[in-house]
Write a protein that binds this DNA or RNA. Sequence first.
DNA 1: CTAGGATCCTGTCAGC
DNA 2: TGCTGACAGGATCCTA
Length: 289
Amino acid sequence: MPELPEVETVRRGLDKLIVGKQIVAVDCLCEKSLPIATADVNKIIVGATILAVRRRAKMLMIDLSGNYTLLIHLKMTGQMVYRGEANWGAGHPNDSFLGNLPDRSTRVIIRLSGDNTLFFNDQRKFGWIKLYPTTEIDDLPTMRKLGPEPLIGDPWPEFIRRVRRHPRLSIKATILDQTTIAGVGNIYADESLWLAKIHPATKVEQLSDDDLKRLLDGIKKSMADSLAAGGSTARNYVKADGTRGDYLDKFAAVYNRANQPCLRCGHDIAKIRVAGRGTQYCPNCQMLQ
DNA sequence: CTAGGATCCTGTCAGC
DNA sequence: TGCTGACAGGATCCTA
């Protein structure tokens, strides 16, 4: 699912397409995906104009006129697809990008002025769209606790302070924790650990500040590279012009490459379980300390 | 407080 | 073919 680069890719797409448009109607096909009272949907969302699209960690914020904001999390399988004057989609990669919509993964349909439509598709129903007064967003506990943004400003001082809070935890579990650093998921965890030559199961207390500096650099590099290409997807991605690209062949050094040769040393990439997640790494380059 | 595990859902794939 | 279990890129809640 969408990690930071993918969510930022969604944000950039939506920013171009929906800002300035009015929400004409909202169709809720799955209550769990849109836990907002129908009365509020009709009173607050319908009729509002979209002012801005923001992102923090893996969450999207769509600011509406009337001082309300839609807070969106795509979780594992959420995606946004826009149909109308443009044909665009980003998020979890599957054929819903290209097929007729709505389909059986469609959870919410947002109808916009100018006969445009925004589909929120989410196969596993883990994602959601919530509504808050704009001024309350920053005060939400989940927002307040988030670690620094990897690609904004200098995250290092906060990153090292927050990593060191968990000396006995594996480094992979630590960086997957959104309160350590924002936006890292399973792909970028594995990729950045490979770049830094750190075994995913290493305890934090075994790592030097230099190790952790390399790891943060790896997080920044893998995310920046992915973002430059329009966000990764495991199988394919649909670019703004509707064509498909293949991320993994170009970027991923370890993710989804079990039993294939390490791009650095040629040793077979191994797959193990760390922090309850499938974990790929090079047993030769990434030694356990 | 910490760390580990179960859990929310649907779909796909490997193995029998 | 049909069944079963494992697994999937997230994050929260529960337990010890």
